[in-house]
Design a protein around this nucleic acid. Structure first.
Length: 887
DNA sequence: GCATCATGCAA
DNA sequence: TATTGCATGATGC
């Protein structure tokens, strides 16, 4: 049985372009639309198993539809160059897939598809038409189903005539009448002005067709009658424009559409050119390519893989002494619970592999263990931070970390989504290694091989590190980041591991009591909400909640998400006046959030044996240079509302009589801004240690300190925040609930006062445009390729990022410096106090009573002197019996 | 089982 | 259509 799949190429590539995040290969070619198209193709091939396939394209600019209506498809924005450059690529890709493509001068893709689907219908061939355009529904029939893309491209929704009937109450052909009445702004088809989908459907249910409506205008009333009568011609013309022409003189026989599968080698070469690594992986395409610029194939290893067990004592000792790299393998995302798989130690010719079992055999592993723990034996590796934790939990302390390829790769491009070894190797055009997923599988299918397969993979990774180290070092040097790496990030990794291993004590009783209290509140609100709604439903489901609020109770819809009604807190606050249920829902949300994320979530993370939680700070995630925190995230523990703030009472010292001491930078980001912009007015404010938001209000509103009221200060504060985030009038207006015009006025007034800030913002954007990147005070770098995009949204985002990253990133640099210095201070002074947490602008310690007075001065001193700026840095310190009290 | 979405917490 | 993150429950494949 034949099965045809007909694809509307133009429609799908457009959808793909706007649905996919920007993506370029290393040659700078945009590939996102082609990527999206490809994922859709793969899905179709798998699900439909077509015998015949065709991708149709529009040809030329003028089609028969323009005869008599020149404005057809007028008013469309020009295709962005980022997309138009992908058309030839797509056509090449289709060739590689072996899929037929067709275009015919004077006709659009949908006419070609219309004609072919008519033939399919006549011959009774099962056919699927794929498009993003609802017009295509008119082609549906007993044999032809229409697959419309839905959110993204790879997901489609299928329609046969019955489903169209169900959804619209129309036959496929009536879809044409629908468009005749309602028009289509994207094609510049007018329809009847003022008639939208709702009205059009109502009319069609009554009168069947455009002609039917026009013949019965007498039945209509008022405005509606007037509109329909005035725009009769328009409706008729619109219907004509919307009608897909199904008699195109095809110069192609349907035999030419036969699909015989793709050639794996050809496709792999194409994917490599596009750098679709994940797809090569997913489809298990061959590694080596025949093409000129195909990826670098895996070469025969230049090293010998040996089991450490098979080496003589002397041989092993000499290999360790001359080691060039080490790779330590763990499985599991949380390094505190990760399973240590094994390790490989490489010098040029020989790579020794130890499995976990080998490592647990004291006789065998003693020399390796002492090498790992030897501060003087330099280790060059990959993600040694994680390795240090995993080793730490089995009683081995990793010392002497000299270079970390992951950290270096992050500094070289902190936005790169994949920093895996396989990806790094490929980016540097070194001979390929297998991905972890290919070797281990993932999720439920995760299976670590034994013996040689595992040894070879570990060895390949150790070898990969060995080859990457000199390349990455050199690139760091070129980017002026050697010092940042060697003196800040690398030492910090060790400091972080120490903090993480130490952990922070959590008192479960505090959480359990709070949990019991929350439970009561949750039960109460739940029953109140059910009573008020007149039914029971899952309040936690935005979908069900939306149905209750907006359909059952009829509250006004404020905002929509891409899947339905929005019910977020911002929306609910606007709905408060309409129904008492809204406030209950807000309270319910607040309590359940605390219960599930903070009470239950935190309890789950407490180690049974020690009563502590051990977070994992990730040093290679945030594009700005900040840390992030996982398992649990201790950087988002509630503080703003009292109810949530009480969670902090559970964080206590791990030794009796000790205190929790916390110190936070005051206004560090605005101080950084004052420094890097050099704005005199702002610098002066900090030199005087003024309240910056009040000072801003005074200057922007032109009043004296006494005349700054709370509202003025609040607005000034919002503007200051906006400045740090890369301001836009839209963003500020949204935040302050004022018009965009007023917001723009505010910003203008602000810039009139802080001229240096304006100059800085202009300069940094220009610089980003010129260099392609921005830097922080310590030369941390972030590339912003989209600063040159023609797409307004992409470009604006890049511009805001250019403004924000040097500020947020420099603040991150500074607290990281303070952490490294603080750690050294504690050591050198032989103090027992321990640094436990970092929360972006705050450091948290546990401190014995006899060190409290010293630490109260030492911590802020170290933080304030971490770096000298043109304005003073200020850190406020506080302490108490738990984190809540340290406020 | 897995990915994605909506939501909300922090700086 | 304001910057950077992470965890949760619901949902749909």
């Amino acid at each position: 049985m034949d099965k045809w799949v007909l694809i509307d190429g133009n429609s799908i590539i457009y959808r793909a372009f706007f649905a996919m995040p920007p993506l370029t290969n290393s040659a700078g070619l945009h590939t996102n639309a082609v990527y999206g198209f490809t994922t859709m193709l793969l899905k179709l091939l798998e699900e439909e198993k077509p015998t015949h396939m065709l991708v149709a394209f529009d040809a030329g600019k003028v089609t028969f539809r323009h005869e008599g209506y020149e404005a057809y498809k007028g008013g469309r924005e020009k295709t962005p160059s980022e997309l138009s450059e992908q058309f030839p690529v797509l056509k090449e890709l289709l060739q590689a897939f072996g899929i037929a493509q067709y275009e015919l001068s004077g006709y659009e893709a949908d006419d070609i598809i219309g004609t072919l689907s008519r033939l399919a219908d006549e011959q009774g061939v099962e056919t699927v038409v794929v498009s993003g355009d609802k017009d295509m529904l008119q082609l549906a029939s007993d044999h032809v189903t229409i697959a419309l893309t839905r959110k993204g491209v790879s997901e489609v929704e299928r329609y046969d005539p019955a489903e169209i009937k169900e959804k619209y109450g129309l036959t496929p052909l009536q879809i044409i009448d629908l468009k005749g009445l309602m028009g289509d702004t994207s094609d510049n088809i007018p329809g009847i002005p003022g008639v939208g989908e709702k009205t059009a459907l109502k009319l069609l249910h009554e009168y069947d067709s455009v002609e039917g409506v026009l013949a019965n205008t007498a039945d209509l009333k008022g405005k509606m009658k007037e509109k329909v009568e005035t725009h009769q011609d328009s409706a008729v013309m619109s219907k004509r424009l919307a009608t897909i022409f199904r008699e195109v003189p095809l110069e192609k026989s349907t035999d030419e559409l036969a699909y015989g599968g793709y050639d794996a080698q050809t496709l792999a070469d194409m994917f490599r050119k596009l750098e679709f690594k994940s797809l090569i992986e997913r489809m298990a395409l061959p590694e080596a390519g025949g093409g000129a610029d195909a990826g670098v194939p895996a070469e025969a290893p230049t090293y010998e893989v040996v089991s450490a067990a098979s080496l003589g004592k002397a041989e092993l000792a000499s290999l360790l002494a001359s080691s060039e790299s080490v790779y330590i393998e763990t499985i599991g995302d949380n390094p505190h619970q990760a399973r240590l798989i094994g390790l490989a130690i490489a010098n040029g010719e020989r790579i020794a592999v130890l499995t976990y079992d080998d490592l647990m055999d004291p006789a065998l592993s003693a020399p390796v263990r002492s090498w790992l723990e030897d501060e003087k034996a330099p280790k060059r590796g990959y993600d040694l931070h994680k390795a240090e934790l995993a080793l730490g939990w089995i009683g081995i302390s990793l010392r002497g970390i000299a270079f970390d390829a992951l950290l270096a790769a992050y500094l070289l491009d902190p936005t790169e989504s994949s920093q895996t070894l396989a990806a790094l190797i490929q980016r540097h055009r070194l001979s390929a290694i297998q991905t972890d997923e290919a070797v281990y599988g993932k999720g439920a299918r995760l299976q670590v091989p034994e013996g040689e397969a595992l040894a070879n993979h570990l060895a390949a990774k150790a070898d990969a590190v060995r080859r990457l180290v000199p390349l990455l070092s050199e690139e760091l040097e070129k980017g002026n980041m050697t010092k940042l790496n060697d003196e800040l990030e690398q030492p910090l990794a060790v400091v972080l591991a120490g903090m993480e291993k130490q952990g922070i004590q959590v008192n479960p009783a505090v959480l359990e009591d709070l949990g019991a209290e929350l439970e009561k509140g949750i039960t109460r609100y739940m029953s109140d909400i059910y009573t008020h709604a007149g039914m029971e439903f899952n309040i936690g489901s935005p979908k069900q909640l939306g149905e209750v609020l907006f359909e059952k109770l009829g509250l006004p819809v404020i905002k929509k998400t891409k899947t339905g009604y929005s019910t977020d807190a911002e929306v609910l606050e606007k709905l408060e006046p309409y129904s008492e249920i809204v406030k209950m829902i807000l309270h319910y949300r607040q309590l359940t959030k605390l219960q599930s994320t903070y009470v239950e979530g935190l309890l789950k993370e407490i180690r049974r044996d020690t009563g502590k939680v051990h977070t994992y700070y990730r040093q290679t995630i945030a594009a700005t240079g900040r840390l992030s925190s996982q398992y649990p995230n201790l950087q988002n523990i509630p503080i703003r509302l009292e109810e949530g703030r009480r969670i902090r009472k559970a964080f206590v010292p791990s030794e009796p009589g000790w205190k929790i001491l916390a110190a936070d930078y005051s206004q560090i980001e605005l101080r950084v801004l004052a420094h890097i912009s050099g704005d005199e007015k702002m610098k002066q404010a900090f030199i005087e240690d003024a309240d910056i938001h009040t000072k801003t209000a005074m200057d922007v509103f032109g009043v004296t300190a006494e005349n700054v009221d709370a509202n003025m200060r609040r607005q000034a504060k919002a503007v200051n925040f906006g400045i740090v985030y890369g301001i836009s009038d839209f963003g500020l207006s949204n935040n302050l609930g004022i018009t965009r015009k007023d917001a723009a006025k505010f910003i203008e007034q602000y810039f009139a006062v802080f001229e240096g800030v304006r100059t800085y913002m202009d300069t940094i954007v220009a610089q980003a445009r010129q260099d392609g990147y921005v830097t922080t005070l310590l030369e941390r770098r972030r590339y912003l390729p989209e600063i040159k995009a023609s797409n307004f949204n992409l470009r604006s985002f890049a511009e805001r990022t250019a403004m924000n990253t040097p500020i947020q990133g420099t603040a991150a640099d500074i607290i990281k410096l303070a952490m490294v210095k603080m750690d050294a201070e504690l050591r050198e002074r032989g103090l027992r106090s321990r640094m436990l947490l970092q929360v972006h602008d705050e450091l948290v310690f546990e401190v014995p009573a006899d060190e409290l007075e010293l630490m109260k001065t030492l911590v802020p001193e170290v933080m304030e002197s971490a770096i000298a700026l043109d304005v003073p840095l200020r850190a406020d310190v506080s302490y108490g019996d738990n984190w809540y009290e340290a406020k």
